[in-house]
Each structure stands twice: as C-alpha cells, then as structure tokens.
Design a binder for these strands. Structure first.
Lengths: 226, 226
DNA sequence: CGCCACCGACCAGCCAGTCGGTTTTCCGAC
DNA sequence: GTCGGAAAACCGACTGGCTGGTCGGTGGCG
C-alpha cells in the first residue's frame, strides 16, 4: 500500500468521495457522521481524526462539489473554439446518463438551502458563480475581439446566461414529468440565443449559426397548437 | 372572540402562519415542533392536536407557501391587460422591500431541497410550476388570439419563461453582492424578450414595445467595457 | 356530566463529539 | 537487520443534549 506522506491526502479524498455520495443520497439534513465514516471505510473516530467536526467536513465537501462542477464546465467549454459555441457548451447539465448529474443535483439543492441561511455557504455559492461567470465573460470577450459580438460590458450578460442555465436545470431536475431533456436543451438555446441577439453581429456564417442555435424551440413549437 | 365552528380553521391558519415564519427563520432542517408551537401561541400538545406529525405540518406549510406565491403571481399578472406585459409582470420577485420575499425565498430553497429527494414534495413543486405555467400559457394564448404572437404551442415557451424567472431569482437572492435588483429586472426583460422574439409579430406599436422591453440590458451595458 | 381544546412532563431514540485504548508505521540505535 | 519505543492512525463505547411523539390530566363550555 502506498503510504506515508500522501496518506493524509488519500484519506481526505476517500472521505470527501464518501461524503459526496452519502450526502447526495441521504440529504445534508439527515446524514450522520457514522454513515459517512462507514462509506469511507473508516470508523467514526477515524473520520473525526481527519475532519474535526461535521461542519468542517460539510464545508470541505461542498467546496469539493463546486470545484468539480466548475471543472466539468471548464472542460466542456474548452472543447469549442467559437465563442458562441463556448457559451452554449453547457448542455452536459441536462444529461441524465451522466453519473455526476445524479449526484450533483441533490447536493446543489442542499447547498442552496444552506446558502440561503449560512453566510459561509453563501460565500461559497457566490464564489462558484463568479468562477462560472469568468468562463463566460472570457468567451464573450473573445467574441468581441474577433468581431462576432458588439462592444459591451460582458459581466451582466454572462450572469444572465448563467442564471438561465441554472433556472432550466432546476425545472429539468425537479419536475422531469413536464420538463424533458429535449425541452431543456431547446430551451436554453432559444433563451440564451435571444438574450445575446442584440449583441451579435451578422457576418454571414455567424448569422446562419445564429438561426441554428436560436430557433430550435421554434421548430419544436411547430406542432399544432391548442 | 369568535368561536366554535370556525375555531379549527382559525387555529390551523395561526399555526401555518407560525410555521411559515419559523421555518423561514430557522430552516426546515432545524426547526422543532416546540419552536412552531410557541410561535403560534400554543403548547406542543396543542399543536399536535391539529397536526398529528411534523411531516403533516410541513406538507401543509409548504402547500400554503406555494398557494401564496401563486396568488401573488396571479394578482400581479391581473394588473395588466396586454399579453406581453402580463408575461413580464413578475418583477415583484425581485423586490427586497416586499416582506413576503424575505420569508418566501428561504422557504422555497428548503422546498426544493426536499423536492430533490422526497416524492411528496416533488409533486407539490411540480403542481406549483404547472399552475404558474397555466398563467403564462393563458397570456400567450391571448397574445396569439389578438395577433401579437404567431401560432404555436405555448407550453414549452411558458416553461422557458418561468425557468428564466426562477434562475434569475436564485442568483439575485443567493449572491446579492454581484446580482442587484436592477440587474435582475433588466436581465429577465432581455432574456424573456429574447426568447419571445421569434414569436412576436411586428405590428407598429407592438414592435416599439418590444424594443422597450427587450433591450434594457443593452442600455445598461453601454458603460465602458474592460 | 361529558366532550373538546389544550397542556406539559415524560420517554425513547438519535447523534455529534469525547476519550481511553489498540494497532500500525517509522526511525534511530545497536 | 532487528529491536525498541514513540508517534501517528484508527477504533468504538460512551455521554450529554436534543427532539418527536405519547399520555394522563385540566379547565371550560354546553
């Protein structure tokens, strides 16, 4: 067994992994230290050796959660080079197959309930949003530089885009009966396409791309209406 | 004191009122029956006389919450006659002055965390969304009928609009440092205006109205960019 | 006199964190 | 290379506090 100086880090990762899945299953309101310790293959005493209180463990766990979501976002965006495609790269949020999804959403809901009351968690949420915003403002700035978008302050627009993703995610996860993955994808495309429309320059291929990304819901809606 | 047959309803309302404010303050995860009983001016025994278990009380409380939010939405929308204005009538969501806001948001976050795991709460959330959607589809249908909007299935569009409101609300409440009320209002106007753009017919005064509601963020962005 | 609303002491279960103890690992001395 | 001992890692019984729900009781009203 690998040992000595890395042990601490290995254990902490083991514990965080266990905490993430246990809290996702049981809910932050009901998990016990014992649950997490057992899931990590430790006793309660062993767990406490690494995280001295439940609160300490929780904060580390949610920090890890935000870290992971951010990392996924960064990677998804990095797969594109066109600024508009970068902005629309977050469809992994609406993928049921993704195991991170099943784990991430319950945790995210817990983290928001915590953030609504506890300043520490609010600060974490705030910081996570800001990192997400940085990704988006980066893409927007790139679009301004290459002439796809007009000159503007990218920050409020990035926050709008991010909020749209988030709002659709909530509906998609909490009310799947009436909000399919297809709806979610079409929905964020139209909404974000629409919010960006005033800032996009029509330069031939861009205009075409705009139609393709901006009007999917329109096609979806071409069914006979009531 | 009014008495006898109305007593039960009076007490139940008293208790729900107390539950709403106590849970909003303390959080669903930490309130105790005693807390709620005291806030309602009863003993724990008295409380249990009306709601036999914590779960029963919680469900009734969150049902009441959704009822109230819906009622506010309905009233806000009813103050407008133009369909596009109806759709944009929910700016009360971003009003810090409104005491319902301070109470409603924490409860809403709790309800979502519950809905992420408990089917009963998920069903409540789902039903609440559907009622909201009915309001919006009503407005959209009106717009189709009077020629403001093109023919379409209003349901997915209404869900997109509703999700945009929700997403912006979350950011506005949980990260107020970087998401002002002004941002929230401008944001939902651009995003919803953008999402609706493909369906709006330009009929003179409507086109003008469309500019006014759809481009507020654009003006906001006219500050010097980085 | 009986019923209904209400009270609050009590019980039983749960759980975070403590603590005394055991095992494992490491390292220097021989 | 091995032995001793100290420190670190880990264990799990235990405690103290909390809380949901029970239950025997009380007062008031009809």
């Amino acid at each position: 067994m690998a040992s000595i100086p890395e042990l601490e880090e290995i254990r902490r990762n083991q514990i965080l992994e266990a905490a993430l899945s246990t809290i996702a299953e049981t809910g932050a309101a009901h998990v016990t230290m014992d649950d997490i310790a057992q899931a990590a293959g430790l006793s309660k005493g062993g767990l406490i050796h690494y995280y001295r209180s439940k609160n300490e463990l929780f904060q580390a766990t949610f920090k890890e959660l935000f870290e992971r979501i951010f990392e996924l976002s960064r990677e998804s965006m990095a797969q594109h080079s066109d600024p508009m495609e970068k902005i629309l790269a977050f469809d992994f949020l609406y993928d049921l197959e993704n195991p991170y999804t099943r784990q991430g959403y319950p945790l995210l809901f817990d983290s928001m309930a915590l953030a609504a009351r506890e300043p520490d968690y609010q600060a974490m949420f705030d910081a996570w949003v800001d990192r997400w915003i940085e990704l988006l403002t980066g893409a927007i700035r790139q679009g301004i530089a290459d002439g796809s978008f007009v000159e503007m302050d990218p920050d409020p627009l990035a926050r709008t885009i991010s909020a749209i993703y988030h709002g659709i995610a909530i509906r998609w996860y909490l009310a799947p009966r009436s909000h399919s993955s297809e709806w979610a994808v079409n929905s964020f495309r139209t909404a974000i396409g629409g919010a960006m429309a005033p800032y996009r320059k029509k330069t031939g291929q861009d205009a075409e791309k705009g139609q393709g990304t901006g009007n999917t819901l329109m096609e979806m809606n071409r069914n006979p209406a009531a």
